[in-house]
Design a protein around this nucleic acid. Structure first.
Length: 496
RNA sequence: GGUACCUUGGCCGAGUGGUGAGGCACCAGUCUGCAAAACUGGGUACUGCAGUUCGAUUCUGCAAGGUACCUCCA
């Protein structure tokens, strides 16, 4: 694929042409999960959005280094937890090593991502494995004069930073406003200003996860790992930084401040943020307790909300979830509902059936269906800030043409057929990352398929003999077993 | 309270200053022994009010409703 990619840059609040610093190389950093719980539907959104971007960049010929971190050092909690490390807290509850908990959820995250056909990133650094880098980064900020030490902790001096740089440029906030609205939080007394944030935090005695540093036994601040690890693997300046919109402030704002203070210049050229998934119009999030985990979707596990009402009516395949997410633009909210998910499921099935039929079409000498500009239309859509809904709508338009030809009501030339196949392959599989079902090609599966074909051929013979009783019996019983039988002009199609 | 954003047909969701993206659901027709599938046709949606305009769903203003961020969150 060729062409200019336009991306919405949160920094400028406009769509801009994507120009890498050093083509053909592209560096992309995306905020990954905090591994102290199962991934929920909300986590699937950035994973799929940036997987899509990764795939699109790759299809454009870029050599992408995609870094997605694992946050396994935990961060401060509010309320009664008084700065207790999240992972440590869970570890004590379950009598597990903190790293055991982190590993457990990391594995589960990986499994869920694999099911969603999310490609693994090039590098997946763990925060806990980069403590020295983070300490060095804090030292740089101290040396530059934008941080101060207070009772074993190190804080970023936002006000001082703002005198030379612009704190709030990403999220559109100004300091005066923040000073008025920030609440009382833990560590307030140690900090000079409420808006200052921790770069290194001294650990309380009961805090299990801790590391040595020049200032105290403690742990890195909320935003430190991303600055340190992005710099380590992508350099002082890199192309794209992604994450959920809810991370814009304070997380990404603080990251910009930290990196700029330490390096003397900004790091990220394009900030890309995906919007939230909502449920009943409200953000699905850990703190709201209204989330549904990916495993629950995949297994159809019962999930009751606070009022005891079932949130999911049935199991949804990973590809349904992926398709559901891709049917909306990444910058818009996407509302979860069973109805929406079930319509996505059916739509996906229709699209994939057309794709399967496409593989079986035979070419004619002429073309009577309109498939001309499919590739061009899909390319324009994906290059326009990853407009997957438009890509999909174009694929559906082409699906009609495919079905028409498959029904024998239209013709397609060899040239057009090949073009259509390669376009479908590129967009359905390579870019949207929609997996073709039962691509498995082992002997057992083959025998099983042949057995079903055999039954249906017997039915075909019965039909030719107008033996409707036998014909219907075969169809009805196969249907009862979960098969879908579709009669064609001179044959049949089936799936499970 | 501050800041930003959103409001599209039964549902989900694109998009545009002027011939109704697409999916799901629904209705009718074609095909079929029947069914399913497929194809074809069917609905004049753009929160309300006012303004700009030859013309607004699209621009401006006001109003109503909703959401996000300001605190860990994807």
């Amino acid at each position: 694929m060729e062409g200019k990619l336009y991306l919405y840059n949160t920094l400028s609040r406009t769509k801009v042409e994507f120009k890498p610093i050093k083509p053909p190389f592209v560096g992309m950093y995306v905020c990954g999960p905090t591994v102290y719980g199962d991934a929920h539907l909300g986590h699937a959104r950035p994973a799929i959005t940036f997987d899509l971007l990764f795939r699109t960049l790759t299809a454009l010929g870029y050599k992408v280094r995609y870094v997605r971190n694992i946050t396994d050092v935990g961060h401060l909690e509010h309320d009664a937890d008084e700065g207790e490390d999240k992972i440590a807290k869970k570890a004590r509850l379950e009598q597990l090593e903190p790293m055991e908990v982190a590993q457990y959820y990391t594995n589960r995250y990986h499994h869920a991502m694999e099911k969603l056909n999310v490609l693994p990133p090039s590098i997946e650094p763990h925060a806990s494995g980069h403590i020295p880098e983070q300490i060095k980064f804090v030292e740089k900020i101290l040396d530059a004069g934008y941080a101060y030490i207070s009772e074993g902790s190190v804080y970023f001096d936002v006000e001082k930073y703002n005198q030379k740089f612009h704190y709030g440029k990403l999220s559109g906030r100004n300091i005066e406003e923040l000073l008025e609205t920030t609440r009382e939080l833990d560590g307030q007394t140690e900090k000079r200003r409420s808006i200052d944030f921790a770069l290194w935090k001294k650990a309380a005695p009961e805090h299990i996860m801790r590391w040595e540093s020049p200032w105290s036994d403690g742990f890195p601040g909320w935003h430190m790992e991303c600055s340190a690890m992005a710099t380590k693997y992508l350099g002082e300046e890199f192309d794209i930084h992604g994450g959920g919109m809810d991370l814009m402030f304070p997380h990404h704002e603080c990251e910009i401040a930290q990196s700029t203070a330490a390096l003397g210049h900004e790091s990220v050229h394009y900030w890309v943020h995906n919007n939230m998934i909502t449920i009943n119009g409200q953000k699905m999030g850990k703190s709201l307790g209204n989330f549904i985990t990916l495993d629950e979707f995949f297994n159809g596990t019962s999930h009751k909300n606070a009022e005891g009402k079932e949130l999911i009516e049935k199991a949804y395949s990973p590809m349904t979830i992926r398709f559901f997410i891709l049917q909306a633009h990444y910058r818009g909210t996407l509302d979860f509902s069973n109805e929406a998910l079930q319509s996505a499921e059916k739509g996906l099935a229709r699209l994939m059936e057309a794709y399967a039929r496409l593989g079986k079409l035979t070419a004619s000498d002429t073309t009577t269906v309109d498939v001309k500009d499919l590739r061009k239309k899909c390319e324009e859509a994906i290059l326009d800030d990853l407009n997957t809904p438009i890509v999909i709508s174009n694929l559906f338009e082409a699906a009609k043409a495919i079905n028409t030809v498959a029904d024998g009501k239209g013709k397609i030339s060899k040239e057009d057929l090949e073009e259509l196949r390669s376009t479908y392959k590129l967009f359905v599989e390579d870019i949207l990352g929609l997996q073709v079902a039962d691509s498995g090609n082992n002997g057992k599966l083959d025998s099983y398929k042949k057995a079903v074909d055999l039954l249906l051929n017997i039915r075909l013979e019965a039909k030719q003999n107008k033996d409707w009783a036998t014909s219907d019996k075969i169809r009805n019983e196969l249907t009862a077993l979960g098969f879908n039988i579709k009669d064609k002009k001179d044959g049949f199609e089936w799936d499970l």
